[in-house]
Design a protein around this nucleic acid. Structure first.
Length: 347
DNA sequence: TATACGTGGAA
DNA sequence: TTTCCAAGTAT
């Protein structure tokens, strides 16, 4: 099967098999570029199901690029709460401003101009160019890379630069063979997402199973090799929950860099080596701590951190020095990480 | 080039 | 319960 037939087969398959998703409001190649950009930023390293439940609310809050460009960053971050990788929200906000300032509010079609937008790398530029504008620009995400490596039976280390370069070259050839680049690119991702899955691929329902070298050699479970695992270092956080007589919670802003950068939290102290003692908390935070043991402990995992939280209760705390009282209702529209939301608003 | 940056569901 | 990870980008 040549590339042209392969592209046509996959595109036809996707027409009936592709899932209905909130950002798929039109045929690939003719979607609202703003919605494409928002969905693609949200989808970076994030599962479709996670984004699917958040996309409509974000679009409702910021319906077009001008609305987003004019918004306060704090509101954008609040709308992003729970999605993780919060720099993406800042990137998206900055990209919207750039589109308004540099491109008169219209999404650029030129891949180089797209690439120049904050948060838009090679993948996202190709996705917007192809899915919004039907341009023959390649994309390689985790799905596409897996499909291509299996299709060609390549057991190369998937993160090696040479392997990645090969995937991009192959994707470039294929997208140029496709009559509808946007539909083809989306079809490749969809195949990887629902058929050619990382574990237990559904080769029986694969439209190109007969072309697949990995399947022919029975290697579909070995290709691609698992990615090397990131090292996780421990982090110990002592967080102090202070509630006033009106039920408001005391919160402060996190540092502008690092984990949960610029988001809000209960007054907290972090250590790399061991959990903060109540005396450490009282001294460092200037708060009166209740009890000798945390009221609650839980672990929160991120890609690079294993974060052990200890939650303490405070007596008669007061605002000041960057700390403010916020009601539950106010906290709902504040930029919070997942564990911070759990502590302040309950799990 | 290696590393940091989140999350919650699946196996 | 623990592990693995999903539509990457920036530095």
């Amino acid at each position: 099967m040549n590339d042209r037939t392969l592209a046509r087969t996959l595109t036809a398959w996707a027409r009936s098999a592709a899932r209905a998703l909130p950002w798929r409001d039109a045929e690939p190649g003719r979607r609202d570029p703003y919605r494409v950009l928002v969905s693609e930023l949200m989808l970076q390293q994030t599962q479709v199901s996670r984004v699917a439940e958040r996309f409509a609310a974000f679009i409702g809050r910021f319906p077009d690029v001008r609305a987003l460009a004019q918004a306060d960053e704090a509101d954008v971050l609040a709308a992003w709460s729970g999605l993780g990788y919060y720099r993406r929200a800042r990137h998206l906000h900055a990209a919207a401003k750039a589109i308004v300032e540099r491109h008169g509010g219209a999404m650029p079609r030129d891949p180089a101009a797209l690439l120049a937008l904050p948060g838009v790398g090679r993948y996202t530029a190709g996705a917007v160019a192809s899915i919004a504008f039907d341009q023959p620009q390649p994309i390689v995400d985790g799905n596409v890379a897996r499909v291509l490596l299996r299709l060609h039976g390549r057991s190369d280390p998937p993160t090696a630069p040479a392997t990645i370069a090969w995937s991009w070259a192959r994707a470039t050839d294929l997208v140029h063979s496709a009559k509808q680049p946007g539909s083809f690119n989306e079809a490749m991702m969809e195949l990887g997402a629902i058929v050619c899955t990382p574990r237990s691929p559904a080769c029986d329902s694969c439209p190109i199973a007969r072309e697949c070298e990995a399947k022919r050699r029975g290697l579909q479970d070995e290709i691609p090799a698992p990615k090397p695992r990131a090292k996780q270092s421990p982090l110990f956080v002592g967080s102090v929950l202070a509630v006033d007589t009106r039920g408001r919670r005391l919160v402060e802003r996190r540092p502008a860099t690092g984990l949960w950068a610029g988001l809000w939290q209960p007054p907290s102290l972090e250590r790399d080596d061991r959990p903060p003692e109540p005396r450490d908390l009282a001294e460092a935070l200037g708060l009166s701590i209740r009890g000798n043991q945390p009221a609650e402990r839980f672990t929160h995992q991120t890609t690079h951190r294993r974060v052990e939280f200890g939650v303490w209760h405070a007596d008669h705390a007061r605002a000041g020095a960057g700390r403010v009282w916020r009601s539950r209702l106010q906290l709902e529209s504040l930029a919070l990480g997942s564990p911070q939301r759990r502590i302040l608003l309950g799990g």
